[in-house]
Structures are given as structure tokens and as C-alpha cells.
Write a protein that binds this DNA or RNA. Structure first.
Lengths: 204, 204
DNA sequence: GATTTAAACGGACAATTGTCCGGTAAAGTT
DNA sequence: AACTTTACCGGACAATTGTCCGTTTAAATC
């Protein structure tokens, strides 16, 4: 009774699927390409595709895997380089990176998010390493900010989660299109809003 | 050349659809009921249904119409009654009402939101009266809070929009299930987080 | 009330998503 | 190397979503 490792052909198929999907998405965009089309183009059965990926959102999540690691590395580097800057500055840096990522991978991110029902674990963004990374890094920074004398302690994980939600691609693009803000303006507004925690002025 | 008003049978069908959908949703839940099933049960054609509602999310949005007006009235009443309380208190009240609404109408709201692509106007939550109502009320309250001496003015519409996004049902239920918070704990955390704008303590 | 107009109808059709199950072949066992 | 096990394969099938188009009929005009 030993653990069977993944079959060689299964691994090849996974790579084939990712390559095929990438090519099709590049050529036609994300939304117009169907799962059937991906399977057919890759020359594999429908079920083989669905066995790997529960739905297109799940596939997109995996396609973002490399990019997300790249992004996490960039951010870690940024945080390392600016470790002596005030927390608000570092939080702002994360915001900037995140917004840039949305701009660059909008199609994939939206396709991913729009398929997420609440129940199913598989392909749920909130269970991805990227979500945890963002939440944990932000949570740490928020802790630094709030270490002081607040009589009402803020739950920093909760706050980080809220910040991530408020920077959802859907909401982001609504802001951009509806109000006509530029990318830089939105970044600025986010930075001001979130770093209000760090440099608050007494109101009223 | 005059404007033709809506045909009588069209109106009847609209009401029939809403009633049928309500009954089916009550019996089986929202997600398992298909558009085909709704049309068939109502005794109308597929196209007749789709002509009214672009997709199930659009239908859900309309089903929330009455409830949303009720909710808006409740909140207006609340704001009226507590107009002399500090803005943070009033913002907190809105949060409470919103969370209660999510709890009560979760299925419909999630079905609605999960169908929203960015482009199509029809059935987009961000174009609904409810969104505008929440954004505008919150924006007003935030203005009161921030009227003071901030050298970096916060865009209150932007802030209100962000708050709405951070209270999205998907994010809310993730918090609730994953971290095991009770409804009241989440309300409290939201209140603290958002009203941090109003009673901030200097950090660092 | 007959005629015209076009909004509305609905069933059939096309496309996409998601599942089943008999068969295949790779990994472990002797 | 032959055998056993079982993860994996893939095409066919079922369900759901979304659209087309010839026909009907309510409403405006005469």
C-alpha cells in the first residue's frame, strides 16, 4: 500500500492544457473561448479537461499561478527594499502593484472571479496563495500602524480582507469607466483611503 | 408618430414571471432553478423570459426591487431619527442594515452578483438605485466626518464605493465561514473599520 | 370597426457547460 | 516479464443557457 504519484501523461496533459488555453486566450480573448474549444484544440477529451479544472475560473486561476508568484516576489522585494519606510508607504506600494496586476491580467482575473460560487473550494480565490499572501502582508503592515493606543483594536486580518475586497477588479473597472479616473488617480485614492489608518487627522 | 406604451400582455407576463420565479425559488432555492424551468412553469416561451431579463442575475435584481425600496426606506427612517447622532453612529447603522439584508437575501444577492460581467449595463448592480442610494448616503456621512482639516482630501464617493465593495456578499460569507465570526462580530468589525475615519487615533 | 404598425410571442435551434461509463495504460507487485 | 490495480482517458450524453425567426396580436391611426 503505497502512494501512487501522478501519472506521466496526466502531467503532460496539464501542461498541454495550459499552453493551449494560453494560445487561444491570446488569439481570441478569454471570454469567447469555451472549455469545449480548449479540449478540442488540445486534442483531449472533455472530461480530461474538467477533471483538472472544475470550470474556466479554475483554469484561469492556474494560469495566473506563475504571474502571481512573480508578483509576490516583486512585492517581497519592494517590502525588503523599503523596510525602513513608514508602513503607509509600504501599504501604498502593495496597492500600486495590485492595481498594475489588475490592469495587466484583467481578463483572466475577471473570468476567474465571476465563476466563484461560495461553496466549492476548488478554484476559490479566497483559498489561493495569492489571497493569503496579500492578506498576511497587509495585515502585518496594518499591525505596525495600529500598534499604538487605540482603545478599540482593529482586527487586522479583517481589515486586510476588506481592503482586498474593495480592490476587486469589478469594482475597480466600474470606478475607472464610470467616473473616468486614470489609473494613477485610482491608485492615489486607494492609498489615501487605506493609509488614512496611518496618518489620521482628528475629525469633528 | 407617438410613443407606444408597454403592451398589456407584456406587463402581465412580467408579473407572472416574478410570481413564478418567487414560488420556484421558495420551493427549491435560487441556484437549482433554471431559466427554462421558470419559463415552462409560467407557461411562456423561452425568448419571452429572456427578452425581459438578460439572465438570472437580472431577474434576481428585479426580485430584490421591492425589498431594496423597503430597505432604503428603513435606512432613511433610521438616518432621520438619529440625525443628531455623530456621523460614525449613522454610518454604523447603515452597515448594520446592509449586513442584515445580506443575511436575509443572500441567495438572491449572490445569484445576482455572480452573473455580472463588466460590460453589459442591463442587470449591473452598480447601475441599480440601491447602489446609488448606499453610495450617496455614505458619501454624505463621510463628508461630514472629513470636513475638518485633512490636507489630503478623501474622495468620499470613492470611499463609499470602496466600502460597498468590501461588504460584498462573497467576501462577507468567506469571513463568516472561514474565520467563524458571528454576524454581530462582523458588524462590529465593519463599524470599527469604517468609523476609524471618524475617530482616528494618531498612529506611529 | 377596418387597417396599419411594430412590439411581443414561443417553439425550435445552436452553443456551452458539466457528467457518465466502458475501456486503456501506466505504476506498483510478484 | 506477466499480472494486478486503479488512476486516467475520451467520446457520447444530459442539462442549461442564450438566440432566431415566422407568426400573433395589442395599440395607434384612419
Amino acid at each position: 500500500m503505497s502512494i501512487r504519484r501522478e501519472r506521466k501523461d496526466a502531467l503532460e496533459h496539464r501542461q498541454l492544457i495550459l499552453r493551449t488555453a494560453h494560445d487561444l486566450f491570446s488569439e481570441h480573448g478569454v471570454q469567447p473561448v469555451s472549455m469545449h474549444q480548449i479540449a478540442k484544440t488540445a486534442g483531449i477529451g472533455q472530461a480530461t479537461l474538467y477533471r483538472r479544472y472544475a470550470h474556466k475560473g479554475d483554469l484561469c486561476l492556474d494560469m495566473l499561478y506563475d504571474y502571481s508568484h512573480q508578483l509576490m516576489n516583486q512585492i517581497n522585494l519592494f517590502l525588503e527594499e523599503h523596510r525602513n519606510e513608514p508602513p503607509a508607504f509600504r501599504l501604498g506600494g502593495i496597492v500600486d502593484h495590485w492595481v498594475d496586476a489588475i490592469e495587466e491580467k484583467a481578463d483572466l482575473i475577471i473570468a476567474m472571479e465571476s465563476k466563484m460560487s461560495c461553496e466549492d473550494d476548488r478554484g476559490n480565490f479566497f483559498h489561493s496563495p495569492m489571497y493569503r499572501f496579500f492578506r498576511d502582508r497587509m495585515s502585518e503592515i496594518l499591525s505596525e500602524m495600529l500598534v499604538s493606543d487605540s482603545q478599540q483594536p482593529i482586527d487586522t486580518d479583517f481589515a486586510a480582507h476588506s481592503i482586498i475586497c474593495s480592490m476587486s477588479p469589478i469594482g475597480y473597472f466600474h470606478m475607472k469607466q464610470e467616473k473616468g479616473y486614470t489609473v494613477e488617480q485610482i491608485k492615489l485614492h486607494f492609498r489615501r483611503l487605506f493609509t488614512f489608518y496611518a496618518h489620521p487627522r482628528m475629525a469633528q
